[in-house]
């Protein structure tokens, strides 16, 4: 498999004229990301940070060969924004928006799957960053990341920055860091990212940052065990003290019955030979690179 996430993307920002869209367009440009166009229905013809704004995604694709979209539109309109991006031929859609109804996510992920080669990152993700390529399609603070050899996949935002900071301070840096999103239903998952990191020569070790809710971590552990994964992996699981059936901030961070407990995730990783860090500062050490 080639890289699921494009390391030289031509990015269109959907919702570019909004407060978040404008702010992060400037920050992504400053980091070095190639932002070729923005889209806000009804605001076509304007410019934001010298980036041309269009009414429709397909205009951005036709005029600028955009292949990646980052979405900042409000939750009630996100479904349509993602469907438009897929219809226009966008291959990677990064959905920053939080608070999208699960039914809408089910619909646009089904559409992406039917179109074969469309990757949805998120929803409710900080996006992805590749420091060696100076590419950031996301909202993460750039200063905690440095070019390096660790691949990070995470269900979290600020906790990812916390851990990336420790990895940076340990002198390792990151080859790529991807937020898979804090929602119950997300597109790109841990297992696909593990496959990508396996084939990526720049990546020498992998950090998985999980949390309570669902079984994505258990599946990742199963994959690592089955494939006898060739690179060192370290996991961290947030939410050991979460009471059952309470949503811990993220829509997806909820223990239902016996499903989704921190204990189950920690036990499964341990059984697969993946060390689970007790605290964020232990991770770099456990990677042993």
């Amino acid at each position: 498999m080639t890289s699921i996430i494009n390391k030289d993307p031509k990015v269109v920002v959907q919702g570019i004229t909004g407060r978040e869209g404008t702010l992060h367009t400037a920050l992504m440009l400053r980091y070095g990301t190639r932002i070729v166009a923005g889209v806000t229905p009804g605001k076509g013809g304007q410019q934001v940070q010298n980036v041309p704004v269009y009414n429709r995604v397909f205009e951005a694709v036709n005029n600028h060969n955009a292949d990646t979209s980052i979405i900042f539109v409000p939750a009630p309109f996100t479904r349509d924004a993602v469907l438009n991006a897929i219809d226009a031929g966008i291959k990677t859609v990064v959905v920053i928006t939080e608070g999208i109804p699960q039914k809408d996510t089910i619909e646009f992920i089904a559409k992406a799957n039917k179109n074969g080669d469309v990757t949805i990152v998120g929803p409710n993700t900080p996006g992805f960053i590749s420091p060696p390529h100076s590419v950031k399609v996301g909202i993460m603070p750039a200063h905690v990341f440095k070019p390096g050899i660790v691949g990070i996949a995470s269900r979290s935002g600020t906790l990812t920055y916390e851990i990336a900071w420790h990895v940076t301070n340990a002198g390792l840096g990151q080859s790529m860091c991807v937020g898979i999103g804090g929602d119950p239903i997300v597109g790109l998952g841990f297992t696909q990212l593990l496959e990508m990191f396996k084939d990526d020569e720049a990546t020498k070790g992998v950090v998985l940052i999980g949390e309570i809710g669902g079984n994505a971590e258990e599946l990742a552990a199963g994959y690592i065990k089955q494939t006898n994964y060739p690179k060192p992996v370290v996991a961290y699981i947030a939410g050991r003290l979460a009471p059952p059936e309470k949503r811990m901030g993220h829509a997806g961070a909820i223990v239902m019955g016996n499903v989704g407990t921190a204990k189950s995730k920690i036990d499964t990783f341990t059984a697969a030979g993946v060390p689970v860090a007790a605290k964020p500062s232990d991770i770099a050490k456990l990677l042993n690179l």
């Binding site: 979290s156 935002g157 906790l159 804090g182 979460a242 009471p243 811990m248 993220h250 961070a253 964020p280």
Partner: peptide, 25 residues
């Protein structure tokens, strides 16, 4: 976004994952 727990140390942070990690720490 608030959930009650049983102890005596109040925890506030930015980002669900970071707050959970703070609680665990």
């Amino acid at each position: 976004a608030y959930v009650d727990l049983d102890g005596d140390i109040g925890i506030i942070g930015n980002g669900a994952g970071l707050v959970m990690a703070t609680i665990d720490l």
